[in-house]
Design a binder for these strands. Sequence first.
DNA 1: TAAGCATATAAATGATAATTTATATGCTTA
DNA 2: TAAGCATATAAATTATCATTTATATGCTTA
Lengths: 110, 110
Amino acid sequence: MLNKNPKNYMHVENLQAPAFLAKSLSDENRLRILLCISHKKKSVSAIVEELQLSQPLISHHLKELKRSLLVTVERNGPFIYYELADKRIIDILRDLNDFAMNLLARRKTF
Amino acid sequence: MLNKNPKNYMHVENLQAPAFLAKSLSDENRLRILLCISHKKKSVSAIVEELQLSQPLISHHLKELKRSLLVTVERNGPFIYYELADKRIIDILRDLNDFAMNLLARRKTF
DNA sequence: TAAGCATATAAATGATAATTTATATGCTTA
DNA sequence: TAAGCATATAAATTATCATTTATATGCTTA
């Protein structure tokens, strides 16, 4: 768990923030981008090359990830580098993956 | 973290499962439903009453949550009870909430 | 078996979002 | 300053999804 003594309590009334975050994580291509830059900042063209997706599509998703505050941007000459704003997003991604795989495995077993 | 020695490794190629799970968690009303049944199974009408949403909308979201394997169903007479399939989804929800609130707080600070 | 409640389902609608295609912007170098 | 590369943006298209409205199904009880 990220937080054993959470400072932010969840209320049935206000779940906008986690829902918004989950929406950012709900697209497979965006998850691939997050993993792709998880160890070091990378330029758009490097990401395009690695993930084999079109440049406008990558740019679109990067814009979305920036809007959700998940990545930060930095220009260096003609290149623009994207970097994780907080690497703990990878832990969350791993938790989602483990939990989802677990659900699927159980469905197959029982 | 859910898993310090994860059995399921993440690959940039296959992130369908976590993306699908995140999509289930990306709607505020579905999160409200999950929290609403987090302590005990509840009937559809009980959920409708608590969350003040229309019955067809609640049924629709419950169907979606069932499809994602997040809830299980049980009929008792005329009532149909929904229950969390795995309560650890609440930990994940809390992590999402904490992380999201953290991002927002930082944006306001810096 | 008719009536009534609990829930599901179907159809229609409106909104949002992913992707593609085309074009613009901005930096660098000759 | 023209040419070229890196990236962003805009427009068009298609797909997905939340919500509403209307209706059907299934259980129970009189």
